[in-house]
Amino acid sequence: MLDTRLSHAQRKRIDKYSTKAKAYLLGVQGNNGLLFKLAVYSLLIGIGFVYLFPIIYMGSYSFKSLEDLLNPLISWIPSTFYTENYQVAYKVLNLFPTLLETLYVTVIPALAQTAVAAVIGYGFARFEFPLKKILLVLVLITFIIPPQVLLIPRYVFFNELELIGSILAFLLPALFGQGLNSAIFILIFYQFFRMMPKALEEAAHLDGAGNFRIFITIAIPMAVPAIIISFLFSFVWYWNETALASLYFGNALTTLPIELGKFNATFEQLYAGDTSTQNINEGISMAGTMLSILPLLIVYFFTQKWFVEGVDRSGITGE
């Protein structure tokens, strides 16, 4: 009997430890087990590495001298931090004047596009008028049509209005709800304002507030997450747009991405016949690329809290 009892107690102990092991590895009652966490963290680390690798690569090579670039023994860490690459890239990009022009042609249209998208989205969400659904569908169709299809007719139209070489080529479409991907921002505000309780507006109407006052004092403060996410996405899209900017601005205005696109040609013009300066190499090119994306990284560093909150509260699942 004693052997049987001991054997039974051992089996209970083994079952107990087995249950704990399964719960620890697989989880129980909604708790994530170790295997699930390992799989998730491995996936996140892999995705993070894919995104961070180009930045790490650029940062490493931008500080390498020509000797380090030619040395097969030096892979990631330079022998010395060679800052002359950034000095050359700074001169080739004409950084500060170009940065100011870039902010000029991106921030103003982004602000205008965000404001107009908020007004249009609120109108579609809160008012009833003839052909409302058809107009909303037409607005969304503009997001499907590639902007390259409209390049020639828009260029001819802007040329007739003498808008070529002016920021108005970006600003006027944004003011009329036809900026870069304006349809998606209108849809964001449309969905956001639809979720607002109508009781707030009805109470404001009873207090004598008009539609404009309700929009300014109630709708806009509640739509801050949508405003943040719309402005940031709009800012980045205008910043990275090179085809339309090159076509509409010509030689009158420029941006950092445009200057980066002709980095090699500008370098050759500046240093042609200058024997004191070496030919362009990968380190100088990487330094120019880092300087061109650095403003965006700084903006995201200071606005990441509001950016993540805006994505979460505005319901964007990926863009």
Rank of each mutant, 00 (worst) to 15 (best):
L168V: 04
T217V: 11
T106F: 06
I45N: 02
I141R: 01
F302Q: 11
R11A: 15
P153V: 06
Y17I: 13
P54Q: 11
G46P: 02
I120R: 00
Y248Q: 02
E202K: 05
F193D: 00
T255Q: 06
A39V: 13
L172D: 03
G283Y: 03
L95I: 12
G310R: 02
G121M: 06
F301R: 10
Y82H: 11
P130H: 07
E309H: 06
G179K: 05
P78F: 01
S230N: 10
R11V: 09
I152D: 03
G315R: 05
F192R: 01
P78K: 07
G33N: 06
A199S: 14
N85C: 06
S246C: 00
L138A: 13
I227L: 15
K20Q: 14
E202A: 03
V50D: 08
F235D: 00
A183N: 03
T98V: 14
F185L: 12
Y51G: 07
L171D: 02
A125D: 00
A115K: 05
L135V: 09
S230P: 09
S79H: 06
L247F: 02
L66S: 07
P146M: 08
I167V: 13
G208Y: 06
Y82I: 03
I134R: 02
L66G: 03
T217E: 15
V40P: 01
A112C: 15
D3A: 14
G46A: 15
E268S: 13
T242K: 04
L294N: 07
F124M: 07
F185K: 06
V28E: 15
G210Q: 07
L187R: 02
D15V: 08
L291G: 03
R194Y: 02
S75H: 05
T254I: 07
A243E: 12
T4A: 15
F307T: 05
A125P: 01
Q269T: 12
S62C: 11
W76I: 12
R5P: 00
N211L: 09
S314P: 07
K305D: 14
T106N: 08
P153D: 04
A110H: 02
V299P: 00
L297C: 11
G59Y: 04
F124C: 04
V137W: 10
K305H: 11
Q269M: 13
A272C: 00
L151T: 01
G210L: 10
N181E: 13
L25H: 09
L291M: 15
V92T: 05
L171M: 10
V40W: 08
T114L: 11
A287R: 01
V119I: 15
L25Q: 12
